[in-house]
């Protein structure tokens, strides 16, 4: 992919974050370019979720700076809402709205944030449901779908805002094994279509096959940063080697 001379879309510079006196991020500096697919790997509790939640400001960082698509994340509410409508997020627990149909889940934000007419929002919604492979479920409620289907709806819901960036926080960790592939396939297709993506995952196959870059996270810092090839065959740091030996 032609990423070398693409524009920087996310720039983190010395990002630090504390929960009380516990420091979850200890100075994260990295730059992500447009259309790049970055997979974040690391042991549980190392701060992976915290980092991507800082990028759409579900958490506020305390030191350093994060610039997303040219807008710095500060306390300015207008900036935050603008960033959030351009950054889609998919959660481990799906977090679909259980009282709304699949279609209403998808059209809610386009209609009320983007102020789109319902027809247009539903048309887009249907296209997205087709893209994630479940157009026939449009009028069902989330509780009537399987985990894999719910996660695909969650992806469609995020895409409905036409985001420039998609964040995935362990999207397959809550799924039964036979459903993991259907979600990964959707993500793969999305990556190939040129979406900028940050994916926290334990799916090493996905990292190998799809990622442009792998970040290895430990104790709130980036320990290793490189191509999948470099990461899996020639890691530089002992902690990375130890981690890989444990999971592979």
């Amino acid at each position: 992919m032609q990423i070398e001379n693409a524009k920087d879309i996310i720039v983190c510079d010395g990002v630090k974050k504390w929960f009380g006196d516990f420091q979850a991020l200890k100075g994260v500096t990295t730059t992500i370019k447009e259309q790049e697919v970055v997979v974040v790997i690391g042991p549980s509790g190392s701060g992976k979720s915290t980092l991507i939640r800082c990028i759409n400001r579900l958490e506020a960082h305390q030191e350093g700076s994060i610039v997303v698509d040219g807008i710095e994340l500060t306390n300015d509410l207008r900036n935050i809402e603008k960033i959030r409508s351009e950054v889609g997020m998919v959660f481990q627990q799906f977090n679909l709205f259980p009282h709304l149909t699949v279609m209403d889940n998808i059209t809610l934000a386009p209609m009320w944030v983007r102020k789109k007419p319902r027809d247009e929002a539903e048309e887009t919604g249907m296209e997205l449901l087709e893209r994630v492979g479940i157009p026939e479920q449009a009028n069902k409620y989330p509780g009537q779908l399987s985990g894999g289907q719910q996660q695909r709806v969650a992806i469609a819901r995020a895409l409905a805002m036409r985001p420039k960036i998609m964040l995935f926080d362990e999207p397959t960790s809550a799924l039964d094994p036979e459903m993991i592939k259907e979600v990964l396939d959707v993500m793969k297709e999305l990556a190939l279509s040129g979406m900028t993506m940050i994916v926290v995952t334990h799916e090493m196959g996905f990292a190998r096959e799809v990622a442009d870059r792998v970040l290895f996270f430990d104790y709130g810092t980036i320990v290793e940063d490189g191509t999948p090839e470099h990461f899996f065959t020639n890691p530089q740091h002992d902690r990375t080697k130890l981690f890989l030996s444990q999971i592979l």
């Binding site: 579900l58 809402e81 959030r84 997020m89 977090n95 679909l96 709205f97 009282h99 009320w112 944030v113």
Partner: peptide, 25 residues
């Protein structure tokens, strides 16, 4: 809590979040 986060993540304002997501539930 995930419901609020999902609502905020798609760009709803606090008021919209209450009206469409939290209060109905």
């Amino acid at each position: 809590k995930g419901q609020s986060e999902a609502g905020l993540a798609v760009g709803l304002t606090r008021a919209q979040l209450l009206r469409f997501v939290v209060l109905p539930q």
